[in-house]
């Protein structure tokens, strides 16, 4: 029986069509539903996972090409005791998601960015995140949350950017 290394565990995947994209193995076989289908042609980034630490589009990786690579999905980001990563925490504190469908992919790309570049500039963020579409357009907050997680002097969520006046 074939196996995959996912989120630090060895998972059995049975006798699958080797052309099956990793995306559908994760979702249909391993019940890891956090990784999303958006386009199937590596245009949107909703299916981004880490393969040996590098962000990849899981819709483009046939399961038959995988052997012992370490696969990390959004479910594998937080610690086993549920402690969130700084990025996950920043995503919540900055209220980044709107519909939320793309956010697993966004987080996987952002996680790889901060690991390689702990203090990214706006240009670094743009370069690392441009493969991930957010149709709801949460880009302003994605930038802010990445900077917050990086410990940069970003505006904290509760310091409020939008303001209002009672008139």
């Amino acid at each position: 029986m074939a196996t995959l290394r996912v989120n630090g565990q060895t998972r059995e995947i049975g006798d699958l069509d080797p052309s099956t994209p990793l995306l559908w193995v994760l979702r249909d076989e391993l019940n890891l539903l956090g990784t999303k289908y958006g386009c199937g042609i590596a245009q949107c980034g909703a299916c981004t996972v880490h393969l040996n630490g590098a962000p990849v589009r899981s819709c483009q990786i046939p399961v038959g090409n995988l052997t012992n690579e370490e696969i990390t999905t959004v479910e594998g980001l937080a610690a086993a005791d549920g402690t969130l990563t700084a990025l996950q925490q920043a995503w919540i504190e900055n209220d980044v998601p709107q519909c939320g469908y793309c956010q697993a992919g966004q987080l996987m790309s952002a996680t790889a960015l901060l690991r390689d570049n702990p203090n990214p500039s706006d240009a670094d963020i743009d370069a690392a995140m441009s493969g991930n579409i957010c149709r709801c357009a949460t880009y302003v907050r994605i930038r802010r949350a990445i900077k917050a997680a990086a410990g940069a002097t970003a505006t904290a969520f509760y310091d409020a950017t939008a303001q209002g006046a009672r008139v």
Binding site: G34, E75, I92, N94, D95, P97, G100, Q103
Partner: peptide, 18 residues
């Protein structure tokens, strides 16, 4: 005031919602 979405934790940890 400002309030973060109630599903945000589930979203960032990949729990099934959709």
């Amino acid at each position: 005031k400002r309030h973060s979405g109630v599903d945000n934790r589930a979203i960032v940890t990949g729990l099934p919602l959709f």
